[in-house]
Every structure is written in structure tokens, then in C-alpha cells.
Simulated assay, not measured.
Amino acid sequence: MMLFLGPLVQLVVESPKGILFEIKMRCNLRCLSLCVRDLKWMRNHIVAPLTEELVFRACMLPVLVPCTGPTAAIFICPLFFGVAHFHHITEQLRSGCDTWGDILITAVFQFAYTYVFGIYSAFIFIRTGHLLAPVLCHSFCNCMGFPEFGRALKHPLRPVLLFCYQLGVALFLLCLLPLTDPFFYGVTPICTLFLNPRAFCS
């Protein structure tokens, strides 16, 4: 969530009735029941994070790590995760609203975005030895979407927002290793990032 400090502050300053009102509205039972009944919301925030992290992290990484080593696996596994999101191209084609050029640009951008997220998700799965962290991060990222830098640059509070964006990135980088230290999670990590590939995979 530190990485999204800028977008979160942007949400706060753009909320017409204040962030506390927004939280109260989103946390009431009626709103939650509407979300649960919305199949698209369920897919994006519950089903996709759970199933994708189960397949691409919990199942695929333990198979790749003994053959490639953990560091290589962190960068290889997200390639499959990125390609798996190409199915969104069919949704755009069915809508008929976008040109082939727009569809291609969107597909490349989405592949890059999901690849980078996949690296992070694989890293925290290997570091913590738990599936819950990647699932929660995935759900949160789906909820937030890609940060709207364009709106931040045009906002009246642009200096504050840009500072929050930069602070969020700095905090994320500073806290990444300390907060994913296997010591905090009560289990031996799946592996360290410095293991060599096993010979039996040749």
C-alpha cells in the first residue's frame, strides 16, 4: 500500500464528502452485499487474485525454483502470468469500439504492468513462504487500478500529490526487504534468493 501512497492521497483530496464518509459507505453491509452480488467485482477482487496467485505463484514457482533457481524463477514465472492476461484482447474485439492499434497498445501495456506485478508477487511469495500476501496485494492492486499520473499532474494540489507519489515509491523500496523478512512469518522461507539450480533438473 505504500507504493500507492500518491493515488490514495489523491482519492482522499478528491472525495467530495471526505475519506471517512467514503470508508463508512463502503464498509456498510448493504454496500458489501451489492459488491458480492456483482460478478465482475467478485472476479476482479476475489476470484482472480485467489486463483491466479494459486496457479502462478503457489503451483508454478515451486516447480520452477528447483530447475532455474529462485532469482531466475521470479523473472520467468511472470512471463506466463502476463501472457495469461491477453484474453482481454477478445473483450476489446467484441466491444468493437477500439482499433487494432489501440488494442495492441493496451495489450503491450497490460503485459508490461502484469509482468512487473508478477515479479513483485513472486518475490514476496518466496520471501514470506505464504500465499496470503500475494493474494491481498493482487486484490488491492485490482481495486486501485493503474495510478492516474495525468490527473495528478493537472491537479491544483499537484506539488503535494507529486511529493506523495515520490514518498510512496521511496517507502516501498526502503521497506521491501525489512517487511518481507522471513523472520516475521514464523516459517522457513521456501528458499533464499541465492540458491543455485538443482542438478536433477537437467
Rank of each mutant, 00 (worst) to 15 (best):
R43L: 05
L50M: 08
F21R: 14
L50R: 02
F86C: 07
F56L: 06
I89F: 09
M144S: 10
F117T: 04
L153F: 14
A112W: 01
V47A: 10
D102M: 12
W100V: 12
L153C: 05
N28Q: 07
F109C: 11
L54H: 00
E22K: 14
Q92G: 14
Y120C: 05
N142G: 05
I105Q: 10
A152M: 14
L132I: 15
F80D: 00
K40N: 05
V47H: 00
F117P: 02
P134Q: 06
F123M: 15
Q110H: 07
R37T: 03
L93Y: 14
M144Y: 03
A73D: 06
C97T: 12
G82S: 02
P78D: 08
I76E: 06
V83T: 00
F149T: 00
F123A: 11
P70F: 01
H138Q: 06
M60D: 09
A72D: 14
F125A: 10
G82N: 00
L104D: 05
A84Y: 13
E91P: 04
A122M: 06
L54R: 01
G101M: 13
V63N: 05
L79H: 04
C35P: 04
S95T: 13
N44D: 02
Q110E: 05
G145Q: 11
C137H: 12
V116G: 00
G101Q: 11
D38M: 03
R94K: 15
L131N: 07
F125M: 10
W41H: 00
R127Y: 11
Y113A: 08
W41P: 01
T114K: 01
N28H: 08
V135C: 09
G101T: 13
G96V: 11
L93P: 12
P134N: 04
G96F: 12
A73N: 10
L153S: 07
F56R: 06
P147I: 02
L131V: 14
A133I: 13
T51E: 08
A72G: 12
S95H: 12
V83H: 03
T106F: 05
I76F: 11
H88F: 05
T90D: 12
M25P: 02
Y120H: 05
N44Y: 03
A72S: 13
L39H: 08
H87I: 05
V83Q: 01
C77I: 03
C35E: 09
F111Y: 09
R37E: 04
C97R: 13
A107S: 15
S33G: 06
T99I: 06
M144K: 13
L50Q: 01
Y115N: 11
A112I: 12
V65K: 08
V65Y: 06
F80C: 03
F123W: 14
G118A: 10
C31A: 08
F81K: 04
M42E: 02
C141Y: 13
M60T: 15
N44G: 10
R151C: 06
V65W: 09
F125K: 07
L20W: 08
A72I: 15
T51R: 01
M42V: 12
A48F: 00
C35F: 08
S121N: 13
V135S: 03
F21V: 09
P70Y: 03
V116S: 07
H87A: 04
I124E: 14
A133F: 10
F125D: 08
P62V: 01
L64N: 03
K24Q: 10
